[in-house]
Design a protein around this nucleic acid. Sequence first.
DNA 1: CTGTTAGCGCGTTCAG
DNA 2: CTGAACGCGCTAACAG
Lengths: 346, 346
Amino acid sequence: MKQKITLKKIAKEFGVSISTVSKALKDSHEISLEVKERIQAFAKYYHYKPNNLALNLRNQKTKTIGVIIPEIVHHFFTTVITGIEKLANDKGYNVMICLSNESYEKEVLNMDMLANGVVDGIIVSVAKETEEKGTYDHFRELIHNGMPLVMFDRVIEEIKCNKVIADDKGGAFLATDKLINNGCTKIAIITTPDYVTVGCERKEGYLKALEAGNLKINKDLIINIDDKQSVEDQLQILFLNENIPDGIFAVNEIYAATVMKVAASFGYHIPDDIEVIGFTDSLISEFATPSITSVSQHGRSMGQKAFELLLDEIDSEDSDYQYKTALIQTDLKVRNSTKKTHLQKL
Amino acid sequence: MKQKITLKKIAKEFGVSISTVSKALKDSHEISLEVKERIQAFAKYYHYKPNNLALNLRNQKTKTIGVIIPEIVHHFFTTVITGIEKLANDKGYNVMICLSNESYEKEVLNMDMLANGVVDGIIVSVAKETEEKGTYDHFRELIHNGMPLVMFDRVIEEIKCNKVIADDKGGAFLATDKLINNGCTKIAIITTPDYVTVGCERKEGYLKALEAGNLKINKDLIINIDDKQSVEDQLQILFLNENIPDGIFAVNEIYAATVMKVAASFGYHIPDDIEVIGFTDSLISEFATPSITSVSQHGRSMGQKAFELLLDEIDSEDSDYQYKTALIQTDLKVRNSTKKTHLQKL
DNA sequence: CTGTTAGCGCGTTCAG
DNA sequence: CTGAACGCGCTAACAG
């Protein structure tokens, strides 16, 4: 950068002291009207702006928050970021985005970096690897050092901090219940390994709905997908034994779209033979054929709420700050992958 | 943040001067071995880390770069960011992401903010509104002030700076040519308004391919979509007059998926009646039915190249730095929306 | 080998 | 009404 205009230079220009200039620019009553006007005009002409670096150092804050997400090529996370960004900008904050790529090590690295005077607070969605390892000391230390921290979506029960979660259990219940109401009796769930908290929550909602609908649980219909292997291959099994499902609840969009493809390859028609509901509503659900009924998570709202809580903590002076957990409602967006009974009813 | 350990505190602890501590921690040969060891051990024990804010002020740089994109809920941009982020982190840089939301004003605001000592360089993809207005002074001023700037994807011809673009014209040519080779003779293009540079480039590739294939240009088959209105409605016209296309090239995925839906609603089958090719390869193309053949842009490579160029400029001391424009190759990912002739050939 | 001084740019007492 | 002095945390040139 070309060197910018500073208080010092203005002071020199007018043959006054730096502090006089500083005060003049803040319209201090201590400075004579005439001097103020001349200095202000000069500053304006040269587009004077206080140097952020200096302000940061002086104020010991940066007006920047950090967001650590596992993946950015992921519609849900981008909607959350949109929500965070919007509100943050309105409040005069910048947003620094870091990707953990689902890696524990990268998550720790990012946090260390952000914590070292880069941001005033951190919003994080925990990496799968971290959830798998169960190693949470980096969060504890961060909090212990007084850095405001908000977790969203993938949160950790045992860490005390502000949290924002979608009503995963409720959403899964809604979805499963919808399938039951549509007449499905053999309902499968396609979910993540159990250490992924959101997957776990959604499975619980599924189980609860089955129970409420007096359907018995069939272990063969519970598929835990290992992302390191081919999703399609792992889904084959659903259609290979005698007990073919007539309804499928997938805990994310990709699983939903993929299982539809696999089902089609086995000659099943959706929704006539099998109904499908996904979780996380985005473009894939909208543009798949048939379009996929899914549980919408309201990512933007989650992002906004997360920033709200973070700001609340940043601004709080209390030493006995009370952490909150915000639950964001989910709801069902009905599309064509579940239209069967809807049409029959007509 | 809880107050951290500083040089000053360590100095006090040992009853030495601050600079002694500073040197000791850098293993300076000027300091006696014994003092060094004691200080280093102490520092390590208390997790001493130099304060970033102070370093930034002193070095007049932040080791952070800014990225301004029009939209983050957009697969292409997220792949670019992934590419930028990866390389930037490897080189010890942080990435700050700002959204312009396609708004000129927000773009200017973001740039002003970033330029004010927040980042060492900026990577930007120009907002549609800016392209529409044709007001580029904010870029000129930025460059004039010596802030390294790289434009990607949506670039501005008349601004001199480093640029990274996909081979839009080439990709569009590939796509159109493919349709021609598959036997299509009435090929439509669904594109953006002409002020969007990428749309314009892609239209040129389309026109060039038509010319090369000895097909005459039919204005009725060139649809400029206005994003402010319903895309579906604007696409109806393609199927309402007598001249129904037998091939369609859409300059993005959404247009491609949407036109497939509209065509289907008119009773046309894809790819048997009409073949479709999109631009920008992502999940929609993959999961649509039929899956959509599309031009892949290699967003990650673009991101990496963009950061590479930015770093090159940041590190350059030359006053007569030579700007470059990197062209990233595109290629065709053939899927089912163009399978017709492929099957016929068998 | 160690310490003093100056400076990065700003804001805020506290004297004058 | 104005300016000198100090501190934020760190580094580097310069003395001793």
